[in-house]
Design a protein around this nucleic acid. Structure first.
Lengths: 348, 348
DNA sequence: TTGAAAGCGCTACCAT
DNA sequence: ATGGTAGCGCTTTCAA
């Protein structure tokens, strides 16, 4: 980290002197010459009570003058529930596709007036982490990957969470599940390569173990697609860097493969380039197939064939959460998402 | 969104019947046969008071049995302060570089025992948004881009925020600033292209106006680098899609440029491919320079030259925030980060 | 060593 | 139409 420090001129150490204490509704009441109850009624526009316009104005002015801002914690303590949706940080490095999905989801939840809290699950894991999450008394919890067990779900529900949704991992008792069907991605890929006449198929599995949640099911899916066809499936470890790709490419001819499903477009691009540098002709000698349908995949030559994933939109999931929150009695549901379709371009 | 619903068997609508109410410290006290005060002492391991081991054990057992989890809101209400670090969602589409930075930052803050709250700033903007943020009484606020003015900073400080840090935009009175010096990125790019003997230089400015915060300073930097050299600078609007790139490439020969700084690697890759499809030889006819030093830039042929950005690590910033929180009296500081260095490869 | 009680800021009853 | 007040769950004096 390189930086240059510049001292602010002494003349203005602070633009506004930091007030000793934060104004409360009592301060507003005092200034407006009314009771705290009245302040609350006015500021919350409570339909149940009628307040004269004169008083309303006085209260609003007082609030304005003091720069009053209600205290969310106090409010939700009193109310007995929060609008917090908790999302533990994913335990795997999020790709561009997943990042965008999360961003969309957050925005949509915000629009529904939820407060999204990203909780970094530093160190803790599993049901121990669930206890930390429960302290926030979230109204809903969205857990990516395999970050929670039945115990954890129970803890959260006991702490008042009206919906627990697991994202991507296998179903957990008591929780709603949004299953990402990565197995079918692999199946799709395997079937496509087989259709193209390929019989000796490599499958890239990232060395990053945190990606196992995705890569293992994809590999399994390829295996299933090819079972009984006489085609072979070879697992290929690959790190996300050029030397690793170069090493793999160097022994490519020995591997004798005629196709490879490269986990996703990024790994596919990396490997394809390494193979080309090694003189391997694509797709003639080896077909290369990615996944995620990134824009950049179209920029290589040959254009990268890919498996397009039909992720739910963030808005969809947000509404799903909202519905679950509104009807917490409903039995946990499992939604299997991820329509996978091959986008054949030039590399297969 | 395509999904298949599967009903959970009726026999187990819920693994554990949802208890009517969340256990409080009073429940624990009752079960352990002690007072609430004692429970608090035991569970917080308060050094100030000595509690007999027998009592300690009874309290712990009771807490365990009830599945007691303290209520964060109540605690921080009583304490008068929170450990919340608020981060409004960025108002611009975050690239891979920025996303990773944010993730790192969140993890580091979590490790320092802060709770990171991502607040989706749906609709609201500027000082109006600041009021919404202040409701959470965050101990620190990290605002990416130009999302806040002096008024907003004052509101947050009044609400008890001990540190307000702006990320990337110009300095705001009263707030610490982590200035991302995008102007120098442009300067660096301009200087490099000039050194390479280029004199008619195009600069890509993404059509996405949300990226103006970054793209405008970069453009200005190029202009500054080339001022007085007789070289020309041409602004080029470009959308992040292939048709847009193709349109720009189609009129390339008319533009008569011999170099282009393409905002970042992604736009550079997009444009470079379109130019090549148009028959423009790179770098002979036109040099192409990106920024961000993404791995994928190395996969094109020619390899993409780029401006490498020396971002601070998330850990660094987290510690900076922590220090500011611990010493809230200190005058706001401005840190200018982003060491920019050209990584010349084959495209320039 | 433990308990009683006050109070953080807010809202919703029940009076007036 | 407005005010008094109880109490959400927690910590922390002060007293015993």
């Amino acid at each position: 980290m390189r930086y240059v420090m510049v001292q602010i001129p002494k003349s203005a150490p602070f633009p506004t002197p930091v007030p000793r204490s934060v104004p409360t509704s009592a301060d507003v009441a005092r200034l407006a010459g009314v009771s705290r109850a009245t302040v609350s009624y006015v500021l919350n526009d409570s339909g149940a009570v009628r307040i004269s316009d004169a008083t309303r104005r006085r209260v609003h002015e007082a609030a304005e003058e003091l720069g009053y801002v209600p205290h969310a914690a106090a409010r939700s303590l009193r109310a007995g529930h929060s609008r917090i949706v908790l999302m533990p940080a994913p335990s795997f490095p999020a790709g561009p596709l997943y990042s965008r999905f999360i961003e969309e989801l957050q925005e949509a939840l915000g629009r529904l007036d939820y407060t999204v809290v990203q909780h970094a699950t530093a160190g803790r894991h599993g049901d121990e982490a669930a206890r930390a999450w429960a302290e926030l008394r979230p109204v809903a919890v969205l857990v990516p990957g395999s970050g929670i067990g039945p115990e954890g779900v129970a803890v959260l529900r006991r702490a008042g969470a009206r919906a627990v949704v697991t994202l991507g991992s296998g179903p957990v008792e008591g929780a709603h599940a949004l299953l990402m069907d990565h197995e079918s991605v692999g199946h799709c890929a395997g079937a496509h390569l087989h259709t193209r006449g390929r019989r000796r198929i490599g499958v890239v599995v990232p060395e990053d173990r945190d990606l196992d949640v995705f890569s293992r099911p994809r590999l399994a899916g390829v295996r299933r697609a090819l079972r009984g066809t006489g085609a072979t499936v070879t697992e290929l470890a690959l790190g996300y860097d050029e030397p690793s790709a170069a090493r793999l490419a160097a022994r490519w001819r020995d591997l004798g493969l005629d196709a490879v499903f490269a986990y996703n477009d990024e790994y596919a691009m990396l490997l394809m380039r390494a193979l080309q540098d090694e003189g391997v002709r694509i797709p003639e000698e080896t077909a290369v197939l990615g996944a995620d349908d990134l824009l950049l995949g179209r920029l290589l030559r040959p254009r990268l064939s890919t498996v397009h994933l039909d992720l739910p939109s963030g808005r969809d999931l947000a509404h799903l959460v909202d519905r679950a929150v509104r009807d917490p009695g409903a039995p946990p549901q499992r939604h299997t998402v991820l329509g996978a379709t091959v986008v054949p371009r030039e590399s297969t």
